[in-house]
Design a protein around this nucleic acid. Sequence first.
DNA 1: AAGATTGACAACCGCAGCGCC
DNA 2: GGGCGCTGCGGTTGTCAATCT
Length: 271
Amino acid sequence: MGRSPCCEKEHTNKGAWTKEEDERLIAYIKANGEGCWRSLPKAAGLLRCGKSCRLRWINYLRPDLKRGNFTPDEDSLIIKFHSLLGNKWSLIAARLPGRTDNEIKNYWNTHIRRKLLSRGIDPATHKPINEVTTPQSKDQTVKNISFGPQFEKNKNLGQKQNGPVCKEEKVEYPIEGRCPDLNLELRISPPFQDHYGESQMFAREKSPCFACRLGLKNVKECSCDTAAWQTMLSNSSSSSGDSSSSSTGYDFLGLNTRILDFRNFEMKLEK
DNA sequence: AAGATTGACAACCGCAGCGCC
DNA sequence: GGGCGCTGCGGTTGTCAATCT
């Protein structure tokens, strides 16, 4: 018994969306909000699969999307985040407001990959191509737990069977180079000095204590006397209807918490 | 001018994660 | 605890325009 298909393929349109379909989808979501993608096409009078509607909305119709060319800043951010996160396009997109995972993925594959290759850098490892297979000296190696696809597969196998939960690999690479997957040291870090909104203020302000960075206000662990910081945190969380995120939707890591709840991210990593 | 090739990006497909029952 | 359904993610394919021969 397989899973039922997400839609009845015989009665759905495929291929490029027409203007009329776009307008119907926008009108429906404006009136009813996002969600329940499975039933949306029927309710909106669209001959499309729910997945297709969701993709169209998220990637092209959402009002907060930033269309147009990527800026050099965005370029370097993508490269930086890719070196840390690998092909986790949704995570990278969460740190680039107005950009979608699909957009970034396409841009990576068509522009950045080529750019890195032309500079002699392996886009997969972010290391010079002629160094990829070069053995490193022992004192420059670190032990790394892989969270890449292979890890995920092993992990899933481990859950379903009674075998090992994950495979700990010893991966050798220079410390100053990129990690092959995700370096856990980067999970908790000072606010990213990006070019977006309040995090610019963060960079200018005196650095807050760790408790404040975690959003723990008025706790005894708080060793921070930066009143402005506390006030800003307070204002940002109270000014929006959503108490779980700031008014901009960006948390102390610069993550868009409307898209990604970093606490879930942490829990996933710790599994 | 016409066909071939390449590049860009929109869209699809299959799978995994998660919540609900 | 396990099955099921829904959503989201990442890889891949399809399509069209631009460029080359």
